[in-house]
């Protein structure tokens, strides 16, 4: 009896053969087939607008000009540098903010006195408009990487902290008691109950924060920078080259989208249990 192995047992798994088909059909993202169509429509609409003659080229540039800027900048490698710069700033800021915000959120959620004393100041901090203080941050941290990291962190810490607080507060008291009944240590409760239980909320916060981090980096680059997509926007404006501005904006959007998608994919694979029991 005790020699029954899990592999043997797994083969008994109750799954009807035809439902395997359905399973795969559901797994395919049908939406993806719409993408080329939508893309084509947008491109043609934009082209029509640009070719209509109502707008000057520096107001609505022709898509082919923007495409030309991209190929130029791809050839000399500068677009990669700008993307990499913004990405590094955004992700460093998000990383630092996440560390601080989850730690803060955790103690606020678990220790009443911290909530009571700290929360008013943290809300005060969040009330400071980051965009308005960004020139100050540049003055204090210089116009290099550091200032952008700080701005990206300042804009992302709040959603991460709120997500942590909500996530930890939502941990089921019944499961807490069950863990205590099993003589679990503080660390074990943290590791096996609090973290997995708060995951959905944490991912919710991360999805907001990851796109905000790109905004933060770009804002910093608007004020003062030598590279990055935000810098490219300002550079294009400075030399009155609207296609470059449009290109930079499109690239910022693209970077945000990719980051968001990565978080979504990670979420779907880590939280696959949430699909359980749903039709």
């Amino acid at each position: 009896m005790s020699s029954v192995t899990t592999t043997q047992a797994a083969s008994l798994s109750p799954q009807a053969p035809q439902s395997v088909w359905r399973h795969w059909l559901r797994k395919i993202e049908w939406r993806i087939f719409l993408l080329p169509l939508i893309g084509l429509l947008l491109w043609q609409g934009w082209k029509l607008l640009a070719e209509s003659g109502y707008y000057a080229d520096f107001i609505v540039p022709h898509p082919s000009t923007v495409w030309a800027r991209l190929t130029e900048r791809w050839a000399d490698g500068s677009i990669v540098t700008h993307v990499a710069t913004t990405l590094r700033e955004a992700l460093s800021g998000l990383f630092i903010a996440s560390l601080i915000a989850t730690a803060l959120g955790y103690i606020i959620a678990r220790v009443k006195i911290f909530d009571y004393l700290l929360t008013p100041y943290l809300i005060f901090l969040q009330a400071i408009p980051v965009i308005a203080v960004s020139p100050l941050i540049i003055i204090w941290f210089g116009s290099g990487l550091a200032s952008k990291v700080v701005i990206a962190a300042m804009i992302t810490w709040f959603p991460m902290m709120i997500a942590t607080i909500v996530g930890i507060r939502n941990v089921s008291p019944n499961l807490r008691e069950m863990m205590r009944a099993n003589a679990a240590t503080r660390w074990q409760i943290f590791r096996h109950l609090e973290i997995p239980s708060a995951m959905p909320e944490l991912f919710g916060g991360l999805k907001i924060a990851v796109t905000l981090s790109v905004v933060g980096a770009a804002v910093g680059e608007f004020v003062s920078a030598r590279q990055g997509l935000g810098y490219l926007v300002m550079y294009g404006r400075g030399i009155s080259d609207t296609p470059t501005v449009v290109l930079a904006v499109l690239m910022l959007t693209f970077v945000s989208l990719v980051l968001y998608s990565l978080v979504s994919v990670l979420e779907a694979s880590l939280l696959n249990w949430r699909k359980a029991g749903k039709p």
Binding site: A9, S13, W273, A276, G277, K278
Partner: peptide
């Protein structure tokens, strides 16, 4: 046996 990979919701 046979249900070990199921989640509680199932």
């Amino acid at each position: 046996l046979g249900f070990e990979n199921q989640f509680p919701a199932e």
